[in-house]
Amino acid sequence: MPDPRRSKIESGAMTIEDLRAIPLFASLDETTLADTARRVHICHYRPGQHIIHEDQPAHAIFFVVRGRVRLSRTAPDGREQVLAMAGPGEYFNAVPIFDGGLSPATARAMSHVTCLLLARDDLLALIRKHPDLALAALSDLAGQLRELVTLVEDLAFRSVRARLARLLLAEAAGGAAEMTHQELAERTGTVREIAGRALRQMAEERLVKLERGRVIVLDRARLAKVAEE
C-alpha cells in the first residue's frame, strides 16, 4: 500500500503551455519546452506535508504550479525560522542544484500544492544548451538573496513588533492567506507567546482588530510606522 504521507507523483502530463507559465521557462522555444515537458514530474502535496528536509541531499529543483510553499530552517531547540514563501511560477531548492551541496532549507506545503520536479542533471543539461536560462536563474537568485538580506536586517536590527507589523502589511496586501499563531511566530522569528502578545498589544492600540478567524488592519499608515521602529 502506498504511504499516504508521500506525495503523489505523475509524469508526462505537462503541456508546453503549463511550462511557459513558469517565468524561468518563458523564453524557451517549442522544441525545448516539449523536451522539458517530458522530463518534469508533477507532484501533489497535502497542507502541512514536507516536500524537502533541510540538510538532505538534493536531486531536483521544484517549480510551484499551485499553492504556497514555506521554506524554513529549524534550530536545535525546535524553533523554525521562515526564510521565504514560494507561490505559483516561483521555484525553490535551486542552491544545491548549482553548488552540489545539501538542501539549505526545509520546504513544507502550506495549502494543497502542485509542483513540477526537474532532476538536477536535466536542468543542468537544459542550461548548457540555453545559456539565457542561466542568466534568468541568476537574476532570480539575486532577487532571493536580496530578500534574505532584508530578512537578516529585520532579524538583527528590528523588534518583533516591527517584524509583525511588516508581515501583517505584506500579507494583507497579498490577499487573504490563511495563517495560525504558530505560523505568525515562525514568520517573525519568535515564539508563539511573544507573537501573540505583540498582536494583542496592537489590538489594544487599535492598529488591528482581532475577530474569530480574522485579523483586520485598521490603520495602515500607523502600522507602517511601527514596521520601521
Binding site: A172, A173, A176, M179, T180, R192, K209, G213, R220
Partner: peptide, 22 residues
C-alpha cells in the same frame, strides 16, 4: 493552541485591510 507542545493545533485567521480603513 496555547498548550499544544507540538504547535500542531492552531486557530487560523486571514489578514485583511479594513474596508473603511482610517
Amino acid at each position: 493552541e496555547t498548550y499544544c507542545p507540538q504547535g500542531a493545533i492552531g486557530r487560523p485567521f486571514t489578514i485583511t485591510f479594513c474596508a473603511t480603513e482610517g
